[in-house]
Design a protein around this nucleic acid. Structure first.
Lengths: 366, 366
DNA sequence: TTGAAAGCGCTAACAA
DNA sequence: TTGTTAGCGCTTTCAA
């Protein structure tokens, strides 16, 4: 072996010595700052190349105070919503010279607090967080107090004045509920992973300005306009696991509740719910109507294709990264992003089984 | 404001001063190493708490040489295969005290080289890489030479003796091809994103020990056992974009090639291909049989449900992280992982349109 | 168990 | 343009 396996990495000092210049000059040439004559620069660079010099970013960061790393905290990187956003963040941050330290919390608040802690210790230059809870913010406040920029993805947090990049979904949700109401549905269920103190949704309870709150707001408005009462008992939160979703769906479909339509808050929930619906032997949309949030490619391949509410997830990711980058650079930045969800009508919504008026109308037209 | 926005972070020295102990003792107490009396420790810890002390990991890493960070390089984090593996890596690394620096290469070799460079500079303790190419390894060799452990995910690289965690897929692929052959298919196409010099597959060309090579090997074996010639002209590589996949599918379906069955190398390809197949007005499995690699939840929801080759992706991720962690700790480790893909027969494979013998058999039994 | 002092590899004053 | 000298915040000798 020509190179010993355990060898010290070459440093600026090594390069400087061989190139016969001062450590400072070598550092300047290597770091690309300060004033260096082209003669010295080329000599230093050549020696560095020969010696296989690689700058130690840890040392550099310690001096400059910038790590050129951003911390991203999400609930579940496996969820297509987040992996797409992550892709966008990565695509945007990389060309700007930032790398991404990714922490997955499994939608657990304690893990999120821990994540923030780690990122602070590692001195990331900025944070992108999709917070689990909207009303527990001590750890997020600590980030803000640290003076490093934080941009929230998807959900705002009560009393925290930071940039929030999210999708306006009240209107799309309104339209979805309206569509269902027009078809004769009244018992419309909504299932979400959103963490809440209770699994049930009380209208009095504030869900903050989370997307879920917006969506329920849109639904309420549709019910109000239709002169019907919003079935708050059909809203289910904390739908974290496959099992819990299966249970929820069973319960919603059974007598006391008897949902005739289900709106799934994201694709992960939808997949579990659809599985359970199939298990129950129900056919969409004849027995049950279905709407899912997020427009994934496979929704078009189902029979019938799913009616969905699409969100500009990639664009959201780009926006959140762009905003953060501007903040980290200390630049003025006040772009107004206007992302809104959009209802895409496909085939999974129809009249409920026993809505006589609708069925009558259908039988006439068919 | 009680706290000035621009303030220096509290350091060990600050804590030491207030606690009236030496910097060294404070550091020992805070860092949890060396010998510290319980009296000093508690005093130091209390002061640290009051002052809101947070260790500067950059400084610590510089001294210890360990950053407690692992670098993960993948082609496309948006691909469910990688996002699931990533989830597994994160779930495994976190409890072991490692964070993840994620770099997405977009399946571009230059980006991969750059990624490795960045990770080296940031002094990650170990690397998990799903290499784009199997025969271009200078940058990977540099990693090995640096003395920090590298574990390859999914694909081996020629001449690089490092741990490789991958799925054995020759047999499952053999069975898939066999299933198709039994049904009367001979013009079986295979579409992959694998980067190759040519889009076409020449049997003489070595694909290294990539999963694709294994899969094609399995298919060849099935053809050989059936006494048929393997249609190498129906193997398509470099299927990177939606457009290219659409084109490939169109071409494969048209006269010169006339594929009667398609095997999609991953879910991203499958989605594009299925879309194009639907556009072409073809019905699966009546007009065309279809097999996809990776068993995603939605494949069960299609009509017909897709016949797939499932891979233990999460387990793969856990294994790759576990292996790396052992290596980083310098522990002896030689667990034999035995991951193999598995054919799951569902409904997307049937006899090709004009296979008289099969059709005859069907019409008897139905 | 404690403390003083050196040093990790780099950047940042300051002089020359 | 160059070099000298201090640090950055921590760990790590080495003595005491």
């Amino acid at each position: 072996m020509s190179t010993s396996p355990i060898r010290r990495e070459t440093t600026v000092a090594d390069v400087a010595a061989v190139a016969k210049v001062s450590k400072a000059q070598a550092a300047r040439a290597l770091g690309g700052y300060g004033a260096v004559s082209s003669d010295v620069r080329s000599r230093v660079l050549k020696v560095a190349e020969q010696l296989g010099y690689h700058p130690n970013m840890l040392a550099r960061s310690m001096n400059t105070g910038r790590s050129h790393t951003i911390g991203v905290v999400v609930g579940d990187i496996q969820n297509p919503y987040f992996s797409l956003a992550m892709r966008a963040i990565s695509d945007t941050a990389q060309p700007a010279g930032y790398d991404v330290l990714l922490i997955n919390t499994g939608e657990d608040v304690k893990a999120e607090q821990e994540a923030v802690r780690v990122l602070q210790d590692k001195r990331v230059d900025g944070y992108i967080i999709a917070p689990v809870l909207s009303d527990d913010n001590a750890h997020l406040r600590a980030v803000v107090d640290s003076g490093r920029p934080l941009v929230l993805l998807d959900r705002a947090v009560d009393g925290l004045e930071v940039d929030v990049i999210a999708t306006a979904s009240e209107q799309a949700s309104f339209e979805a509920a309206q569509l269902l109401l027009e078809q004769g549905h009244e018992r419309i269920a909504y299932i979400s992973t959103l963490k809440a103190r209770s699994d049930r949704y009380g209208s009095e309870k504030t869900l903050g300005s989370t997307p879920v709150a917006q969506r329920l707001g849109g639904m309420r408005r549709a019910f109000k306009e239709a002169g019907k009462e919003f079935p708050a008992s059909l809203v289910r939160l904390n739908a974290g696991t496959d099992e819990s979703i299966h249970e929820i769906v069973q319960e919603l479909l059974a007598p006391p509740f008897g949902a005739t339509a289900i709106m799934a808050s994201d694709s992960v929930i939808a997949l579990s719910a659809l599985e359970e619906i199939a298990n129950a032997g129900l056919t969409i949309p004849a027995d049950l109507s279905f709407v899912m949030f997020d427009d994934l490619p496979w929704t078009r391949l189902l029979t019938p294709p799913l009616t969905v509410v699409s969100q500009p997830v990639y664009e959201l990711g780009v926006a959140v990264a762009t905003t953060l980058i501007h903040r980290m650079r200390g630049e003025q930045f006040s772009a107004e992003f206007d992302f809104h969800a959009q209802l895409i009508r496909r085939g999974s919504v129809a009249a409920p089984p026993h809505a006589e008026t609708i069925i009558k109308r259908n039988s006439v037209s068919v």
